[in-house]
């Protein structure tokens, strides 16, 4: 016997919340990607917990797909960040948007 399923939901919820706060408040493209990773991970934890609760292997399959999508997303995202850095010399989203603090 492990813990009640609600505790797993609560853990996933708190992790998702931390990721969301990171995505919204940090002003750094890499930290924004970090937040996305944390949120995807929280979703995977919740899916595995649900799979155990319902005694279905389906939850683990979805978690595997989440893993693959996260890998694809992070590779393209980091390539975009490197591209942006080469063109504008900064990874601050505010600077990119208004071209305010462009380094020449």
């Amino acid at each position: 016997m492990i813990v009640p399923y609600t505790h797993v939901i609560l853990l996933g919820g708190i992790l998702f919340l931390i990721g969301m706060v990171c995505t919204i408040t940090r002003r750094n493209l890499i930290m924004i990607l970090f937040g996305l990773e944390i949120m995807l991970n929280a979703a995977a934890v919740t899916f595995v917990g649900a799979g155990l609760q319902l005694q279905q292997i389906e939850g683990q399959a979805i978690a595997l797909f989440i893993l693959a999508v996260a890998a694809a997303e992070v590779s393209v995202g980091l390539a975009l960040i490197v591209c942006i850095y080469r063109q504008t010399g900064t990874i601050d989203p505010k600077c990119i948007e208004g071209n305010v603090c462009r380094l020449e």
Binding site: V8, L33, E37, V48, A63, L64, L67, A71, L78
Partner: peptide
């Protein structure tokens, strides 16, 4: 994941997330 009965996912998590993705982040 190991605790919740998904050993394969636990190992994949170590290899892909903690290994590959984080090393990619560190590199960038």
């Amino acid at each position: 994941f190991f605790l919740l009965g998904a050993p394969l996912l636990g190992i994949l998590q170590v290899i892909i997330y903690a290994g590959a993705i984080m090393v990619l982040f560190l590199f960038i």
